[in-house]
Simulated assay, not measured.
Amino acid sequence: MRSEVDVTAGELVVRAREGNAAAWNALVERYTPMLWSVARSRGLAGPAAEDAVQATWLRLVQRIDTLWEPESVGGWLATVCRNECHALFDAPFAPPPRPPGDDADPAPGPEIRSVDRDRLERLAAALRAMPERCRTLLRMLASSATYTEVSAALDLPVGSVGPIRARCLRRLRGSLDE
């Protein structure tokens, strides 16, 4: 039998569908560096990039049985990762990206500073209204803590940090939208 390194992507997908752990591991080993590159190319780093990569793998787990062209799993993963990155940028408090070639003076005027201050005050109030676990988790991730560190501090499985973070951010967005 060939080693997992010599097996095509399509064969790995078929084996992973059948529950072959070695095939899953080979897929993860083969495509995770590419997913990190996609996340970084979209401007994500640290926990946000981890969320995008983890969510991409979760989508494959959920949809592996529906892939029509298993040999195209690499392109499928890249597309899903780009979509996950885009979803992470839809936060109401994220600054809009600057258009290419925009050489405007980045120093904000008093109106912009006032709007920014109001936005920060609303964000702080919304954070104070959240459950303690969400506040702690978001605060730790904002200070560049790793998922492993958050997991240990909050006594959570590492794999649940990303989904809990997503729920906390959805709750935060909802309270900001009100």
Rank of each mutant, 00 (worst) to 15 (best):
A126V: 04
A126S: 08
A126R: 01
L127W: 00
L127I: 12
L127T: 09
R128L: 12
R128E: 13
R128C: 12
R128V: 11
A129F: 00
A129N: 06
A129I: 00
A129H: 03
M130F: 02
M130L: 12
M130V: 02
E132D: 12
R135P: 11
R135D: 05
R135H: 02
T136W: 02
T136Q: 10
T136C: 11
L137H: 00
L137R: 00
L137M: 06
L137Y: 01
L138H: 02
R139I: 12
R139D: 14
R139W: 10
M140R: 05
M140Q: 06
A142I: 07
A142M: 09
A142R: 15
S143L: 14
S143H: 14
S143P: 09
S144V: 11
S144M: 11
S144Y: 10
A145R: 14
A145K: 13
T146P: 14
T146L: 05
T146E: 02
Y147K: 09
T148W: 12
T148Q: 15
E149T: 09
E149Q: 12
E149K: 07
E149H: 03
E149C: 03
E149V: 06
V150N: 07
V150Y: 04
V150P: 12
S151C: 09
S151L: 07
S151N: 08
A152L: 14
A153C: 05
A153H: 06
D155M: 12
D155I: 13
D155G: 14
L156M: 12
L156C: 07
L156V: 06
P157T: 04
P157M: 01
P157D: 05
V158F: 08
V158A: 07
V158Y: 09
V158C: 06
V158K: 15
G159V: 03
G159D: 07
G159H: 07
S160D: 10
S160V: 13
V161R: 01
V161Y: 03
V161D: 03
G162I: 10
G162D: 11
G162F: 05
P163E: 07
P163F: 08
P163R: 08
P163L: 07
